[in-house]
Amino acid sequence: MHKIKRMLSRLGAGFVNKVWRLGAGARLFWLTLISSGESFRRFRLTVREVYFTGVMSLIIILVSAFFVGMVLALQGYQTLQKYGSSEAIGVLVALALVRELGPVVTALLFAGRAGTAITAEIGLMKATEQLSAMEMMAVSPIARVIAPRFWAGVIAMPILATLFSMVGILGGYLVAVPLIGVDAGAFWSQMQANVDWRHDILNGVFKSVVFGVACTMIALFEGYDAPPTAEGVSRATTRTVVTSSLAVLGLDFILTSFMISV
C-alpha cells in the first residue's frame, strides 16, 4: 500500500515536472521571439550559426538521403513490378521523399547532429558562467546567444530537407534507371504528372520549417535549462534527441492530417 502510494506520488511529480518544463519552454520560445530583433539587425551572428547547424550537417544529410532514395527505389520496384507498373517508381520515390521522408528524416538527423551540439554548447556556456557573465555585461543571453541559434535552425532545416529530397530522388533515379532499367523518360514524366508543386513540395517545405522551430527550440531549451554539471549537460543532450524525435513524429502526424483534409 505504501509502495503504491509512493509510486503514484512519483508519477504525479513526474507529470507535474513535464508540464512545468513545457511551460518554461514556451516562455523561452516567447522570449526568443521578442528578442529576435538583434539576430536580424546583426545578421552575421545568425549566419555564423547557420554555418554550424546547417553547413556542418550537410554531409550526414546528403549521404543519408542518397541511401534512403536508393532503398526506396529498390523496395518500391519489388512491389510495383508485381502490378506491372514499375514506371511508377519515380512517383513513389518522389512522393515518399518530398512529403514525408525528406522533412522527417532530416529533422531526426538534425536533432542528432545539430540539436545535441546546440544543447551541449549552451549547457556548457551556462556551466562555465558565460551566460551569467553576459548578463552582468548588460547583454541579454537570449538575444545574443539563443535567438541567433534559433533562427539559424529555422533557416537551415528547410534547406537541408529540400536537399535531402533532391538527393534522395537522384539516388532513386540511379537505382531505378541505370541499375534496374526503368525507362528514364517514364521515370521523370510520371513523377512530374503526379507530384504537385503546392500540395506536395511546398507542404513538405512547410513541414520542415515547423520541425526546424521544434527541434531547435527543444535543443536550446534543454541546454538553457540543464543543471550546470557534467552529468546535467549529458542528460540534457540525451533528452534533446528523445524529445525532438517524439515531437517531430507527433507534429508530422498532426500536420499531415491537416494537409490531407484541407
Binding site: L124, M125, T128, E129, Q130, S132, M136
Partner: peptide, 13 residues
C-alpha cells in the same frame, strides 16, 4: 557601471 570577474573567468570559448 559594473564589471565582474567570474570565478573561472567565464571567457567566451
Amino acid at each position: 557601471k559594473m564589471g565582474m570577474l567570474f570565478q573561472q573567468g567565464a571567457l567566451f570559448t
